[in-house]
Design a protein around this nucleic acid. Structure first.
Lengths: 106, 106
DNA sequence: ATATAAGTATCGCTATCTTGAACTTTCTGT
DNA sequence: ACAGAAAGTTCAAGATAGCGATACTTATAT
């Protein structure tokens, strides 16, 4: 379970039936490098490259980077959260945020 | 019109009243390097670094990278909420959701 | 069987990133 | 106002990784 980033990219690329060359072209780099990211566990692609990759694969860079996030985030779940949150007034929203902050400190 | 990234980081850091040293420590870098990112504008930080910075400043890396996006939107704030919520364990997540439910009944 | 596309691998230049110190400016309390 | 502390600014040099170029190997198809 070493190279999460590489696995994600490879998976998404395959889903879209793109070859290394096609993806490489989309993001303006060589296929060898993107192959290395996928397979050799290249640790830190530049933000620029990663943003380009994310765009080409229709995901966010945050999703690609975050190792704890292994599934393309469930839009429905997120939507529900957003909608409920939006129903609160600003003060309550802030209180929720404070609470999340406090609890994530440990 | 150069160095949008640096300006964003600097702005967010100031908003949170963090010193260079404090932010540097949060993300595991020297203050000189982060100063260079903010002011010298020549740097293209790695995705890893940028992700750490985004997390420390409560924004997404996508927001930091996208030069066309210059202000923190409501959507972005919600996105950050959601990200933090995901870091909590299931029990805490449920309690947050319950709280949102309770408060929205008004 | 040959051609062509896809994938695998290596090399090397350059830029990122670290360290760390020294210097300057701004802030703080007295 | 002054000293001392804290924040910010600058520089230099070395280690490391990004990633483009290129060439080799394996799969697919006609």
């Amino acid at each position: 379970m070493a190279n999460v980033l590489g696995a994600k990219i490879k998976g998404l690329r395959k889903e879209k039936a793109l070859t290394l060359e096609q993806l490489a072209e989309k993001i303006g780099s060589g296929k060898s490098y993107i192959w290395e990211i996928e397979n050799k566990g290249v640790k830190r692609p530049s933000a620029e490259k990663l943003a380009a990759i994310a765009k080409a694969l229709d995901v966010t860079t945050d999703y690609l980077i975050d190792d704890t996030q292994t599934e393309v985030s469930d839009d429905l779940e997120k939507e529900v959260f957003y909608r409920k949150l939006g129903q609160l007034d600003k003060g309550d929203q802030d209180r929720i945020m404070d609470m999340i902050d406090a609890w994530s400190k440990k």
